[in-house]
Amino acid sequence: MEYLVPEPLGPVLVGLAYGPMVAGFLERHRSFIDYVEVAFEQIRHHPPTARIQEDVPVLLHCSSMSVAGYVPPRESTLDAIADVARQTRTPWIGEHLAFILADRLDDRVNADPTELTYTVCPQLSMETIERVEMNLGRLRSRFSVPIILENSPQYFATPGSTIAMPRFIAQVAQVCNVDLLLDVTHFLITTSNMELDPLESLHSLPLERVVEIHFSGMSMQSGRWWDDHSAPAPEQAFELIEGAKDRIRAKAVTFEYNWALSMPESVVIEQIARARELLAV
């Protein structure tokens, strides 16, 4: 069993998000990647997924903490995340700066909250930042490794929002003293949909706090940009990182190609090499 141990000031580690194409890629190109990022939910719903750690170190990702939400996750869920974190010896847990649970609109007694299957961009407000701070305070005590927060893609303005996404992320990082998982594709989607300048917006983030970067695809449909893990990361994503690389010291870069059954391996190999070169110390 191998574990992921990023070296201080060591080279950036590169991995793939666990999905249908990973087994074949590992079989043919094991030396190209340092780890596989596995979602806690994949292991919870299908425990044999954890066996991948016999072949490659695992970095833990998560969508269940509802960090920016008003409804806490169940204690049993947090216990299960802690168990998987211990089992995988992940150096950190990447969680979405989003919510996945919400109060029901009706007032049925003892009714379960609304549980989503997909994380949702929260209201961007000081109220939510305070909520994130409170939630993180409670969550951090449950785990022996840090939680880092991943920026959500913003498709439309959440009701009641008073802050633009870049400032929201920066404020959360500062107020909550938390490091970041920069999903560069989410960031591009947000700046494109909300008509913000991507590079200027990127530079407004505390980029020194970026521990991990995600790359994935994006697609334009029905008049706006959407996250797309079945398409290769666009050129603009690499250009954006290029434009801020002097401020970024990420320890890991993960390519999220976990929706598609396959992806041209030559493209993946080329992008992995490019990420290593771009973020070389």
Partner: peptide, 20 residues
């Protein structure tokens, strides 16, 4: 059942979640 009394961010999240 009636309507739960929510406000601010909690209400915004509840509406989005219910719609989804």
């Amino acid at each position: 059942t009636g309507v739960r009394s929510l406000s601010g961010g909690a209400l915004a999240h509840s509406v989005l979640a219910a719609g989804l």
